[in-house]
């Protein structure tokens, strides 16, 4: 399959789906407004309450779904490419959970309130520590099993510490937010959250998008990649920092949303001819599609109850995860 062929066959439908779902996300909500009213309020702006709903409530929600979905898809594809392991995913190996711990600490200590970027930077720090920890524990050529076991330990610890911090908080509402930090939600997010997450995400996207050539070379093995002039230490550093940036920024504003980085690259891999470089951008678009879909679904299934996004992504993702484990087991035997 040639590269341009892949582009038209995979990229165009994904872009179209993202656009359609983005529009659907802008038009679905508890306030019943007609299509014409919604659009004119969105573009004309002004002080009207409809403009407020479109610009301050629905727009940030749809934007964050795209940004965070793309980030998770991209991070999943990059990690799987580097580790050559289809089970690597930021949620499963504890990166999202640790980012949530960093975010919770920033909120409860007052760091988030005292300095604008305190929240995403603390989440970034949490994510960074866990990526380094898991990669050190599993080793660069670690088996799937050691990677997943290290991830389970790190996620369990992060979840326990997050719950502990929220239970110790003087705020009576904090403890009930454990489920938000574990499952993620985009309800009632604002443009403030978009601006909080965007800088780190852009940095992370740039770092991860630059991995394409290196990851392609790595499919031939580390020695071959080095012979082709790929500097593996640099590649690894870009991957770690890029993943921590995108996952940290996303988790800081929307909680930990699992399985997007697992499901999306898995579905798209055969469509892009298993080329890691093509899989990167395809997974970014696919992640945006998946999260937009999930966020529309939570609003349609239980409009007033704030069903968490992680519930839906796990219902789709966990069976696929089991399927991948079975497949890996057969290959080993």
């Amino acid at each position: 399959m040639t590269r341009s062929n892949t582009m038209t066959r995979v990229m165009l439908p994904l872009i179209a789906a993202t656009l359609v779902l983005f529009c659907a996300s802008m038009l679905i909500g508890p306030a019943r407004m007609s299509l014409g009213d919604s659009l004119s309020a969105l573009f004309a702006g002004g002080e009207s309450p409809m403009a407020l709903v479109m610009r301050e409530i629905r727009l940030p929600r749809a934007l964050l779904a795209v940004m965070i979905g793309a980030s998770l898809g991209l991070a999943g594809a990059a990690m799987q490419g580097y580790l050559r392991n289809p089970l690597a995913e930021p949620g499963l190996i504890g990166v999202s959970g640790s980012a949530a711990l960093g975010a919770v600490l920033a909120i409860q200590t007052g760091l988030a309130a005292s300095f604008a970027l305190g929240l995403p930077l603390a989440a970034l720090a949490g994510a960074l520590i866990s990526v380094l920890l898991v990669m050190a524990l599993a080793g660069p050529r670690g088996t799937s099993l050691t990677l997943i076991l290290a991830g389970i330990a790190v996620s369990a610890l992060a979840a326990a510490l997050t719950s502990l911090v929220l239970n110790l908080s003087p705020n009576p509402f904090a403890a009930s937010e454990i489920v938000f930090w574990m499952m993620g939600s985009l309800a009632d997010r604002s443009m403030t959250h978009v601006w909080l997450a965007l800088p780190l995400m852009v940095l992370g996207w740039a770092l991860l998008a630059g991995l394409g050539r290196g990851l392609d070379a790595l499919t031939l093995g580390e020695d071959a990649a080095q012979a082709m002039g790929i500097r593996l230490t640099r590649l690894r550093l870009m991957l770690v920092i890029g993943t921590a940036c995108v996952v940290g920024a996303g988790t800081a504003v929307a909680g930990a949303i699992g399985f997007v980085g697992l499901v999306v690259p898995h579905i798209l891999r055969p469509l892009v001819g298993a080329r890691p470089s093509s899989l990167l951008w395809a997974s970014a678009l696919g992640g945006a599609v998946m999260l937009l879909l999930a966020d529309i679904a939570v609003r349609l299934i239980l409009p007033e109850r704030d069903l968490k996004l992680g519930v839906l992504t796990a219902i789709v993702g966990a069976p696929l995860f089991l399927h991948l484990i079975l497949k890996l087991r057969k290959e080993r035997i």
Partner: peptide, 10 residues
Amino acid sequence: RPYPGGSRAE
């Protein structure tokens, strides 16, 4: 008036 410590609910 929010409680100390901060929460998403508030």
